[in-house]
Design a protein around this nucleic acid. Structure first.
Lengths: 90, 90
DNA sequence: TTGACAGGCAAGTCTCCACTTGCCTATAAA
DNA sequence: TTTATAGGCAAGTGGAGACTTGCCTGTCAA
């Protein structure tokens, strides 16, 4: 569903998460929270980021991997191709 | 501002308008309204479509040209490149 | 000049969504 | 076994935005 993709991209905090995962892939929720606060100056709570990650995962932009009590998130940009395929940029 | 771009893409009706303009460029508001109703089964009012076009224009995805009492809208997909440039798909 | 047509403006309603709050589960260290 | 850590769940709140409604402006044909 492309609806989930565009909905995921619609929020600035979620786009900052994608930026952060582009910079360093495979991060846990807490890592993302602290690094977002540092580099992007975002004061979002853990729950907020967690909900954002769920939206990104539903869009297929983020996949997860469990390891003990840690959950690693990594970026998958392939869904973005459908955008330029739908409306070609030439 | 990329905020305007993602906001513009976030709505399904606006994406249908982009589809319609991809299929046939340079349409007036009324043409878009009637063709959306036909092909996409959308029963949106004229004002609704007009407001959507304003959002698309603000995002740089649509440019306009006045001609008498007609206003023609045409598609510009170049802003979409910034998406795959921001998060490369390889 | 009058009426129809293409489009614009502004206020109001309503729904969705981002975020909070509080509590719960599970893993690992003390 | 306790205690701290990493994360999850669910209900409630507030604000942004999609859509409507009513009226107004400007252009062209009869």
């Amino acid at each position: 569903m492309s609806e989930a993709l565009f909905k995921a991209l619609a929020d600035a905090t979620r786009r900052a998460i994608l930026d952060e995962l582009t910079d360093r892939n495979d991060q846990t929720l807490f890592e993302i929270c602290t690094r977002l606060a540092m580099k992007h100056g975002l004061g979002s709570s853990r729950q907020a980021i967690s909900q954002h990650l769920a939206v990104l995962e539903e869009a297929g932009l983020v996949t997860t991997r469990r390891e003990g009590r840690y959950k690693y998130h990594h970026l998958d940009t392939t869904p973005l191709r459908s955008i330029v395929e739908r409306w070609p940029t030439e």
